[in-house]
Structures are given as structure tokens and as C-alpha cells.
């Protein structure tokens, strides 16, 4: 089943074409890798799916509906949640507050109810608290709950950013180079985390430089080069695709 579909997506930056007529189908429950050399347009494409950029042309369907006109935050409400390559946490928030923040769109108490601390706010806040602690436990950060997020190790900050995204109950999780800056063992735990998320039925789009990681977890890979899609397929197909080898890797084969 198709969860998201990109049709003819193009993007210009002041006359310079960053993406040209990209078609891509994201299957429900899969892990979709997005790779390409620097400047290929993967981050641009990613930002168009998340709603940080507007596309210049084409259409973007999510669960069958066009969502191109929706803002970034509205897409979060539909279940499209992203992380950032350079980790964007809230400097003044505790670890627990970060996860609570993830529940923002799932809660419904309005301003009046919050200001007067009515019953539904009260109930909702304790529900958020409980669920957040539960989620922190699940990702193994419960011992840091009251700490400032900026005092966490780099690997744990990544983990927290993903936990915050998970708290928003995504249907489609967009991971922007989650392995960037992580050491070998941290990449291993990240890999496990991605598998766990996948096991819960959450669809993932993964932009990544770390080839091994992408090849290992993705069931579908799209390769971009100079703003165009040059190949698509399973890890094996991509690994043996002559165009990919020539365009993307220069010479030689992909090592795994």
C-alpha cells in the first residue's frame, strides 16, 4: 500500500534547478532510503516532504490527499514528523519536556481550558506526563528525565530528538542523516532503534551519507544526482546498478 507519493516534484532556487520532476512512491511500513552525492537535492526533497520548503511544481500525496499546500506544522498533525541533520533540541527544555513537546498536536485542550486549568487540561497533562515517561523508558533515557537536554551526550541527543518525533505518533518518520556525527557503537544502537520503530509499523524515509546503514536497513532506495532521480530499487539492485556506480561512486563497486 502506498503511504506517500511524489509526482513530478520540482524545485527552483532563484532560477537554479535543485530538483527536476521527481517521482517517488513511499510504501506503507517500509524504510525508504534517499541517497546521492552532495548537492544531489536529497535535503531539498526531504524539506519539501516535511513542509519546510514549498515545491515549485508537481504534487505530493499523503494517504491519497494532496498535502503540498499544508504548512510544516499541519503535516505533523497528519503524522509526518521529521528530525534534523544538525539536531535541533530546545536549549532550555529538560529531557522530559522534549518528549512532552512531541504530544503537542495529539492534545486538544484549548487556551481557555489551560488558563483555567479545567478538568480536560488536568487529565490531558497527566496523560502526557505518563506517556512521556513511558516513552523515555522505552528509548532508555528515563534516568536523564529531569536533565537539561544540552547536557546529554551527542548520541543521546540524537536519541532524544527521535523520541520527541515518536511522541508525535508519526505515520511517516523523516530521518535527516541520523548517523551524522555518531561513533561506531552509537550507529549500531541507532540501527536497532530504527528497526524497532519500523517494527511498530512506522514508515521511515532516511536521508543518509552512511552507505552501510542505508543499505542495511532500507527496503527501497532512491538515488538522486544533480536534482534528478537516477535509480530506484532494493539495496541489491542499487548496489549493482551501473548508472549508480558510474554517477555516484565514480568507479568501483559499493562496499558493504
Amino acid at each position: 500500500m502506498v503511504l506517500a507519493e511524489l509526482k513530478n516534484i520540482s524545485k527552483d532556487f532563484g532560477g537554479i534547478t535543485a530538483l527536476k520532476e521527481i517521482d517517488m512512491v513511499v510504501r506503507q511500513g517500509g524504510i525508504h532510503g534517499l541517497i546521492g552525492p552532495n548537492g544531489a537535492g536529497k535535503t531539498t526533497l526531504f524539506n519539501i516532504i516535511s513542509g519546510n520548503y514549498d515545491a515549485t511544481g508537481g504534487d505530493l500525496l499523503f494517504e491519497g490527499n494532496s498535502i503540498l499546500k499544508l504548512r510544516n506544522d499541519e503535516r505533523v498533525g497528519l503524522g509526518i514528523v521529521r528530525t534534523f541533520q544538525n539536531i535541533r533540541l530546545f536549549p532550555s527544555f529538560s529531557v522530559l519536556d522534549h518528549v512532552k513537546m512531541g504530544f503537542h498536536r495529539r492534545a486538544s485542550a484549548n487556551w481557555l481550558s489551560s488558563i483555567l486549568w479545567l478538568n480536560n487540561t488536568k487529565k490531558e497533562e497527566s496523560w502526557i506526563e505518563e506517556e512521556s515517561r513511558h516513552l523515555l523508558k522505552k528509548v532508555g533515557l528515563e534516568s536523564f528525565a529531569q536533565q537539561q537536554a544540552k547536557n546529554l551526550s551527542y548520541g543521546n541527543q540524537r536519541r532524544l530528538e527521535i523520541a520527541r518525533a515518536l511522541a508525535a505518533k508519526p505515520k511517516l518518520l523523516l530521518l535527516d542523516e541520523p548517523a551524522a556525527g555518531l561513533n561506531e557503537s552509537e550507529v549500531r544502537t541507532l540501527l536497532e532503534q530504527i528497526r524497532e520503530i519500523h517494527a511498530e509499523g512506522i514508515t521511515i524515509i532516511l536521508v543518509e551519507h552512511d552507505m552501510n546503514l542505508v543499505m542495511e536497513v532500507s527496503d527501497q532506495i532512491t538515488v538522486l544526482s544533480h536534482g534528478q532521480k537516477i535509480a530506484e530499487g532494493s539495496a541489491n539492485e542499487i548496489r549493482n546498478n551501473p548508472i549508480v556506480i558510474r554517477e555516484y561512486l565514480g568507479t568501483g563497486k559499493i562496499e558493504c
Partner: peptide
Amino acid sequence: IAARAIGVN
């Protein structure tokens, strides 16, 4: 940017 990305209007 992070606030928007977690759904804040």
C-alpha cells in the same frame, strides 16, 4: 524551526 517541526503553529 524545531517548534514548527513538532507541530506548533
